[in-house]
C-alpha cells in the first residue's frame, strides 16, 4: 500500500463542508476509541466509528462516503452518550449519511431502501403502515427473497395475534403529510441550485 499523501489527499473543503453542515467539530476528537468501544454494531462496520472520526479529521471524503459504517449505524446514541469530548457522534454519522445521499454514494443499498420505503409509506398513508411498507420495500427495490422470507417468519405469528392489518386506517392528515414531503423536495431542489 502506498503512503497516504496527506498533502495531496486531505480534502479540506470536505472538512469545512462537514463542519458547516453539522455544526460539529471533528478536531474535538482525541481518538480515545470510546465510541468504538461501546458501539453495538462495530463488528459489522468496515471502519469502526473512531476510525470514521479519524478519516473525517484527515478529510478522507471518498473513503467515508463509500463506507458501510455510516449506513449501519442505528443511532442508538451510545457513542454520543459516552463521548468524553462531548461530540454528538451519532449526529456526525447522520450528517455523513446526508452528504452520501446527496452524492449518490450508498454502500448499503438495502438499508437506504428500507428507510426510503418507510418514508414512502408515511407519505402515502401518513402513518407507518407495516404491510404497505414491506410491499413497497419488496416491489420498488426488488428485495423479493429476503422480504418474502421475512413475511413468512413474521406473518403467521402476527396474523394470529391480530397484530398486522392489511388495510391502512383512515386518515385526516393525509394531504398535509404528503405536502410536507412535496415541499421538502422543492426545498432540496432550490438548495441544490444554489
Amino acid at each position: 500500500m502506498d503512503a497516504l499523501n496527506l498533502t495531496e489527499k486531505t480534502d479540506w473543503t470536505f472538512i469545512e463542508q462537514f463542519k458547516k453542515e453539522s455544526g460539529d467539530n471533528p478536531s474535538l476528537c482525541y481518538q480515545c476509541g470510546n465510541c468504538t468501544a461501546g458501539c453495538p454494531y462495530t463488528h459489522y462496520f468496515d471502519y469502526p466509528v473512531s476510525m470514521i472520526m479519524r478519516l473525517l479529521q484527515t478529510g478522507q471524503k471518498e473513503t467515508i462516503l463509500n463506507s458501510k459504517a455510516i449506513w449501519l449505524c442505528a443511532t442508538c446514541e451510545t457513542c454520543t452518550t459516552r463521548c468524553p469530548c462531548e461530540i454528538d457522534v451519532a449526529h456526525v454519522m447522520d450528517v455523513l449519511r446526508h452528504i452520501a445521499r446527496r452524492e449518490n454514494k450508498v454502500a448499503e443499498k438495502g438499508v437506504k431502501s428500507f428507510y426510503d420505503s418507510f418514508l414512502k409509506s408515511v407519505k402515502l398513508f401518513s402513518r407507518m403502515y407495516e404491510v404497505g411498507m414491506i410491499m413497497i420495500y419488496m416491489l420498488r427495490y426488488g428485495y423479493m427473497l429476503s422480504a418474502a422470507k421475512l413475511g413468512m417468519d413474521i406473518g403467521p405469528k402476527f396474523l394470529t395475534r391480530g397484530k398486522l392489518s392489511f388495510f391502512p386506517h383512515e386518515l385526516m392528515g393525509n394531504a398535509e403529510v404528503a405536502r410536507i414531503f412535496k415541499k421538502y423536495r422543492k426545498m432540496e431542489k432550490e438548495r441544490a441550485k444554489k
Binding site: 443511532t75 447522520d94 446526508h98 445521499r101 418507510f118
Partner: peptide
C-alpha cells in the same frame, strides 16, 4: 389526525 413522527428513517435523510 396525528401522523408518523418520522422516526429513524426521516433523520437519516434530512433533519
Amino acid at each position: 389526525g396525528w401522523s408518523c413522527c418520522g422516526s429513524t428513517p426521516a433523520h437519516t435523510v434530512n433533519h
